[in-house]
């Protein structure tokens, strides 16, 4: 999945997150959650799985329970708590919010795994070229700055300057190092700018190069995304997927949007699984 063109990926992520966050339909939300879980399982390391379950499952219940405790809307009271009714509708709605929230969180997690900074910069660079160069320079500068700060503070420590454990000494030592780092940064940027000038920065007609291409694979994926998304959005606009919880939970009607969105949110899993199977097959042939 991560080898597709960043624009296609960005479009896909935005579509999934927006639909699952703003449609109030449980089928759409549950399929987004399922897709998110499966995608996450592939993208994250297996050593993190236990930690993730330990975080997201309690999170789910906390969100689900919070709603019925504070919202007393709904027509079917189950029991009374401190004189307030706790309703079935609020319970179900709480569950739906939790499904939506966890789904969105998982998709965001996948987003951060797949959309690395260089992909983000590429999308940025295509739209605002100057800014993308500035960002790229900043990303180069930050680790260098950190390393130099460490070197300076160690050198200062080895001279025994303000290295005692008292709070005032600590603050003073940080302030001193920071001041030195300001002059260091200025000095450094002068050299960087000569190096840029020497390589012709500032000439007219600068182009923007990126490693990413838009190939046939990207076109196919984009077509699939557009078709599935079209069917889903059609269902949402025509009201086929309209669903409400208050005052009473409405009933679900069948819609083609459910099938389309089901496939849509499972797309990354299908792609990854297909590749994994293919890989196995090739390995077995070797």
């Amino acid at each position: 999945m991560k080898n597709y063109n960043p624009f296609v990926l960005m479009f896909y992520f935005l579509a999934v997150v927006i639909i699952s966050a703003f449609s109030e339909n449980p089928v759409l939300q549950i399929s987004a959650l399922l897709g998110g879980i499966l995608f996450c399982a592939i993208v994250t390391k297996s050593s993190e799985t236990a930690g993730n379950i330990g975080f997201y499952v309690p999170m789910f219940f906390i969100i689900a329970v919070t709603n019925p405790l504070f919202s007393h809307n709904g027509a079917t009271p189950l029991f009374f708590l401190n004189g307030n009714p706790v309703t079935l509708e609020a319970f179900v709605y709480g569950g739906a919010i939790a499904v939506m929230a966890i789904g969105v969180m998982l998709w965001c997690k996948c987003y951060s795994e797949i959309m690395t900074t260089d992909k983000f910069l590429y999308i940025f660079g295509k739209t605002v070229p100057k800014l993308s160069l500035v960002l790229s320079m900043a990303l180069k500068f930050i680790p260098m700055y950190k390393q130099q700060t460490r070197r300076v503070s160690r050198a200062q420590k080895a001279m025994g300057l303000y290295s005692s454990k008292s709070v005032t000494d600590k603050i003073r030592s940080h302030a001193r190092v920071f001041m030195a780092m300001v002059s260091w940064s200025l000095e450094n940027s002068i050299e960087t700018s000569s190096s840029m000038k020497a390589r012709g920065y500032g000439l007219k007609g600068r182009t923007n190069f990126a490693l990413f291409k838009f190939g046939a694979d990207d076109l196919i994926l984009l077509a699939v995304i557009v078709i599935l998304l079209g069917v889903t959005v059609f269902g949402i606009i025509t009201g086929e997927t309209r669903f409400y919880y208050y005052p009473r939970i409405s009933t679900l009607k069948f819609s083609a949007a459910y099938i389309a969105f089901g496939f849509f949110s499972l797309l990354p899993f299908i792609i990854e699984a297909k590749e994994a199977i293919k890989w196995r097959y090739y390995v077995s042939k070797i």
């Binding site: 790229s136 990303l139 180069k140 960087t192 190096s195 390589r199 012709g200 600068r206 182009t207 190069f209």
Partner: peptide
């Protein structure tokens, strides 16, 4: 060095 990625650094002059 101007940019954060090796490939971008190589391309920098040609972009200019």
């Amino acid at each position: 060095t101007v940019t954060d990625k090796v490939w971008h650094e190589l391309a920098f002059g040609l972009e200019n």
